[in-house]
């Protein structure tokens, strides 16, 4: 199926560039989330089947039957909230894995081609540096997280199926308990909008990674982090402020999207599931557009520098 989507159809430069990203970063895009999903599935099956059917939620241990009984005793609304929270949290391993893939792909994006000299081959092709950098950016900020969300969707379905199996032989209905109380389409839609907004909020940081990847002579990771750490230290020591640390932290955690008007920490909960609209509404904050402006400047510099670098 994937092979047919990613088959090039003759002359189509931008598609070819995106395919190049896929071929080069197959592991980050595809293998990593697949492996994490597979491992999570195996862990769930093992923990349910072999390890006494205990599930830990909020520091308490339940067997599955106890949990089902417990849940069935609650109101429908509570069940629904619980199920959706579990499904939401279940995406974390895959999404955290994808996040690391995004960071390292961004750091390698314009560095690897210089390291293996293949930049001369890429530059011998009639595609502009602008197109190349854009393709790399889209790959990091959209392709990697979207494929990961696809895997989280499969994983969520898997959880519901496994959950349904465990209701077999009990009085409870899998449909009532699990399938109708979870709102999977809304959940996935919410994850997708969250991801797009996350990518836009975090864009200045990732644009910085890409700029570093075009400059770094060796180890883009160190060059991307150490100077920033020094500036943060400098700012703390001499100005007793932490604007830069806050800026980076807020953007990398996606806090701006989850945060309501009450300010950081007050109404912030990783379990709070935003509606798609709430996710998009974070674009109304001025910091959102300031971030995009900074990202555009950093990317422009990256494009100019790639134009100059031939080795």
């Amino acid at each position: 199926m994937i092979a047919s989507i990613i088959k090039p159809g003759g002359y189509n430069p931008f598609k070819a560039l995106m395919l190049r990203e896929y071929w080069e970063n197959r592991r980050a895009i595809f293998t990593t989330p697949l492996v994490i999903m597979g491992l999570s599935m195996v862990l769930i099956i093992i923990s349910m089947g072999l390890l006494g059917r205990a599930i830990h939620i909020d520091g308490q241990s339940y067997t599955l039957n106890e949990m089902i009984a417990n849940m069935s005793a609650q109101k429908a609304q509570n069940i629904s909230t619980h199920i959706n929270q579990i499904l939401m949290v279940s995406t974390l391993p895959i999404m955290i894995g994808a996040w690391f893939c995004m960071v390292f792909t961004a750091l390698g994006s314009l560095y690897d081609e210089r390291k293996d000299n293949s930049i001369l081959f890429w530059k011998s092709m009639p595609v502009s540096d602008l197109q190349t950098v854009l393709a790399k950016l889209l790959n990091v900020m959209l392709v990697i997280p979207f494929v990961a969300i696809g895997f989280t969707f499969i994983f969520q379905i898997f959880l519901l199926i496994v959950g349904s199996f465990s209701t077999l032989g009990t009085d409870y209905s899998a449909w009532d308990l699990l399938w109708s109380s979870s709102n999977l389409p809304l959940l996935v839609f919410s994850e997708l909008t969250y991801m797009v907004m996350y990518s836009l909020w975090a864009l200045p940081v990732f644009a910085w990674f890409m700029l570093v990847s075009v400059i770094a002579k060796r180890s883009p990771l160190l060059l991307a982090t150490i100077p920033v750490a020094l500036v943060i230290l400098f700012e703390t020591l001499f100005f007793h402020s932490e604007y830069l640390a806050r800026f980076i932290g807020m953007r990398l955690t996606g806090a701006h999207i989850l945060q309501t008007d009450n300010g950081f920490g007050q109404n912030f909960s990783i379990l709070g599931i935003n509606t798609p609209l709430e996710n998009i509404q974070s674009a109304a904050k001025p910091e959102f557009w300031i971030g995009l402006g900074i990202a555009a400047a950093l990317l422009y510099a990256a494009i100019l520098l790639r134009k100059r670098s031939s080795l």
């Binding site: 088959k7 090039p8 003759g10 002359y11 189509n12 430069p13 598609k15 070819a16 560039l17 395919l19 190049r20 071929w23 080069e24 081609e113 293996d116 293949s118 081959f121 890429w122 092709m125 009639p126 595609v127």
Partner: peptide
């Protein structure tokens, strides 16, 4: 590039 397959290299050049 070391990581590219011969067939992919052909696909890429055809694309651009």
């Amino acid at each position: 590039p070391k990581w590219i397959k011969v067939s992919e290299a052909i696909d890429f050049v055809e694309g651009v």
